[in-house]
């Protein structure tokens, strides 16, 4: 058991336990905190996969923006559902069954693909070169500039749309929105 394997197993165990707590927790603020632990664990896994840039982007986008937004909305809507009312709907057993069946099916599928048992190939490029390649590929006309631009338009649409949706009722939602 090498040290990298140990780190992976520890991180995976913590992340999966935290994910279980997210879906089973009665108190929503605690669920949001467990979600932050899951996101941090996944950032560690990205570092293990030599994708350091993605790890930092994960922390910056998920933990610093999405998780904080979720906690704010939890605080704003906390009167709605206390810890005493039911947290799961009537057919929760069906959902659990579906999850388990899906997992068993996926594992059975993976065991039939020999490529998945392989080890990682050697890392023959520098991290600096990888980062340069990533940057160039996002703006190169022959590579992935189109998904990049479409993603920015999507973010702009989401920005404008969420401001319009959450605008307080009655105070001129027909006014010019600020982009």
């Amino acid at each position: 058991m090498t040290s990298v394997q140990l780190v992976f197993l520890l991180t995976a165990a913590i992340t999966l336990y935290a994910a279980l707590m997210v879906v089973l927790s009665k108190h929503l603020v605690h669920a949001a905190l467990w979600l932050i632990l899951v996101l941090a664990g996944i950032a560690v896994l990205y570092v293990l996969l030599n994708a350091g840039f993605l790890a930092v982007v994960q922390v910056a986008i998920y933990i610093d923006a999405i998780a904080i937004l979720i906690i704010i909305v939890v605080m704003l809507t906390q009167r709605a559902m206390g810890e005493t009312s039911m947290q799961v709907n009537r057919s929760w057993w069906l959902a659990a069954l579906t999850s388990i069946v899906l997992f068993v099916g996926l594992v059975a599928l993976f065991n039939q693909i020999p490529f998945l048992q392989s080890d990682a190939p050697a890392l023959d490029v520098d991290a600096e070169v990888l980062l340069d390649d990533l940057g160039v590929s996002l703006v190169d006309v022959d590579q992935y500039i189109l998904p990049f631009e479409v993603a920015s338009v999507l973010l702009l649409a989401a920005l404008v749309g969420s401001i319009m949706i959450a605008w307080p009722r009655g105070s001129a939602s027909e006014e010019e929105h600020e982009a």
């Binding site: 899951v38 899906l102 996926l106 993976f110 048992q117």
Partner: peptide, 23 residues
């Protein structure tokens, strides 16, 4: 670390999220 470990981890996380979204 064989690839299957990462894939199984992702599968477990996905199924836990699926339960959370459905139930």
């Amino acid at each position: 670390i064989p690839l299957s470990w990462y894939i199984i981890f992702a599968a477990v996380l996905f199924c836990i999220g699926l339960y959370g979204a459905l139930a």
